[in-house]
Design a protein around this nucleic acid. Structure first.
Lengths: 338, 338
DNA sequence: TATTATATTCGTAACGTTACGAATTGTAAC
DNA sequence: GTTACAATTCGTAACGTTACGAATATAATA
């Protein structure tokens, strides 16, 4: 039983519409004294405008829905921070949900947010999912403003924010090549996402540029794919011409490799150099801090909001794509080979 | 312009109320064929019930608001996972906001969530804040169901979920004492929170039990407090009778100390044993994994939901408090002294 | 004082949904 | 062909808000 405009109106003996007008637009033709009286009553009665009623006028809710896979991955909070901060500046509020990489959760959360009539979505779609894309088709057909981040939806065009995956990977691998590494392992994602293929392209092109040949046996998926990938990883380093460096497609993968190698008695970077991608906290607080490719994640969030607001204003404009720059962060995990 | 009941009604040539009834209660007296027709039309027209209109009936929204300080702290995502999972089971949905440890954001986000008429709140209040407590008084007076986690609100009683801070700290320090450490540094939070005082009490009691005397110079606040606490920390270990162990009130503090000491040339645990509190990911992936006090954070989340739902059902029942158990996780960062 | 202009305030309809009781249809029994 | 009863379906009011145009009060001018 929260108080309503009617309650306030009764309290100050004015009409509901007067109270509404005063409370919702500060600029107004109303008597200063009246305004003060109303504001005060609102305060006293602990009035919270009912967004439900408001949005029923078909007005903007000024709320945007953000759907991320998993907050436990420290990649996301920074982006969310950027989103919230920028949204806030424009008077938008953010509602946050998680999918836990689960397709039916993804669908359910989108529906929930639609029920709340959010003005638009920022989605981090589950990468390379075989989900039923109908939900997204409907978003598209309903002209609901959507910005996808990181992954795109098959066959459906939305605004998009991503990372300069190709450039970043090339940067990283070029660095290893400069340090005279000849045999560089590529620790890859297990999926078939565009992120993966771009980073792989960066890896191979960096090798090519220095006339090193690409060996597909040096590309292996991370811990969540193979059966005993840790053993397999170590076995690669026990061969007689072992790799001397690892390019990992993510910091998490890099940290995993780091841990496994250390446990197996290898020293980083003396025996093996490692370079990651993402500049996550996990890599920074390693004993030998991780050299990595960083992207400005808050900027990603800001960019996503700016694309979204542009679309909210012009729902029919052409879809835009933005790639966030990368740069190399040199820390201790890479070492020259002689 | 999402479709409405009216649209569906027109489409199937039935009244709005029939459509509403069919769509909102699956149990019903309606003709099976009619039901199918309606469901199908809803699907075709991509109908999403308008929560706004629904909640205007004064009905439950089946949405609960969760307000956390900062998702970048990996302490929170686990709890949120527990919250979401349990809420989901009961048919409740979760709206998540951050305060960034900022009091005015805290107030604004609570107001936002109230505007959405959430059925209740799970709050992680900013600890030891000098905030204006009026917002909380109003929540209390308005009988809005609220569960606080971790910190309480001064002078205002809400349901509460916390950690067995005293027992956990005592457990940790007792362990160090068993390992024959005589001089144990306590790395404390900088605030005056109840969490701090309870963990401090655990620390002192563990010492007392083994007849070790409490030295208040051995209690020092973490990195965010003193001017040059890192230097100060190291200086303590350069004295002639240096501490041989550290009890840190959080894993983050522990990791910080670990890093500083390593950088200064000390070995963990050979020179200094460290024990943390919280069992965060950061401590697990250290080169020398951190011994720590763990609490089941998903259970915290579940508990919070169960208290909240109980309160939603009986808004006037007595406030309950739940403390989540702690246990010691022995890893490599502690070492016996001889 | 009458007339106009200006400053304030008001009343009504509409948004999409649900609860409630009323209305309509169909069916079986007489 | 009534009547009784069940099976379906319907109509209306209400929730809290805002937009819109209308109404009233007050001041300024003739």
């Amino acid at each position: 039983m929260p108080s309503t405009l009617k309650d306030i109106a009764k309290h100050v003996k004015l009409s509901v519409s007067t109270v509404s007008n005063i409370l919702s637009s500060s600029d107004s033709r109303y008597n200063k004294a009246t305004q003060k009286r109303v504001l005060q009553a609102a305060e006293e009665l602990d009035y919270h405008p009912n967004k439900a009623a408001r949005s029923m006028q078909g007005l903007r809710t000024k709320v945007i829905g953000v759907l991320v896979p998993d907050l436990a991955n420290s990649y996301f909070p920074d982006i969310i921070h950027g989103i919230e901060h920028e949204a806030d500046k424009e008077g938008y509020q953010v509602l946050l949900c998680q999918t836990y990489y689960n397709e039916s959760d993804e669908a359910r959360k989108i529906s929930l947010l639609r029920q709340h009539r959010v003005d638009g979505f920022i989605l981090f779609p589950i990468p390379f999912s075989h989900r039923n894309n109908k939900i997204f088709e409907k978003l598209k057909k309903g002209k609901i403003p959507v910005v996808c981040v990181d992954s795109k939806i098959d066959h459906i065009k939305f605004d998009f924010v991503g990372t300069e995956d190709y450039k970043g990977a090339k940067l990283a691998v070029s660095r290893l090549v400069e340090l005279k590494h000849k045999k560089i392992l590529c620790l890859s994602f297990g999926d078939e996402s565009e992120i993966r293929s771009e980073r792989l392209r960066g890896y191979t092109d960096a090798l090519k540029k220095k006339k090193l040949k690409f060996d597909k046996n040096l590309v292996l998926p991370g811990p969540w794919e193979a059966d005993a990938p840790a053993d397999f990883l170590i076995s690669l380093f026990k061969k007689k011409k072992p790799p001397t460096a690892i390019f990992a497609m993510s910091d998490l993968l890099a940290v995993w490799a780091y841990t496994q190698l250390r446990a197996a008695g290898y020293q980083i970077p003396k025996d093996v150099s490692i370079i990651g991608f993402g500049d996550l906290h996990e890599g920074r607080c390693l004993d030998t801090p991780l050299t990595t490719v960083a992207q400005d994640r808050e900027e990603m969030g800001r960019k996503a909001i700016s694309l979204l607001l542009a679309r909210i204003k012009k729902p029919n404009s052409r879809c835009k794509e933005a790639l966030i720059e990368t740069k190399l962060i040199n820390r201790a995990s890479c070492f020259g080979v002689h």
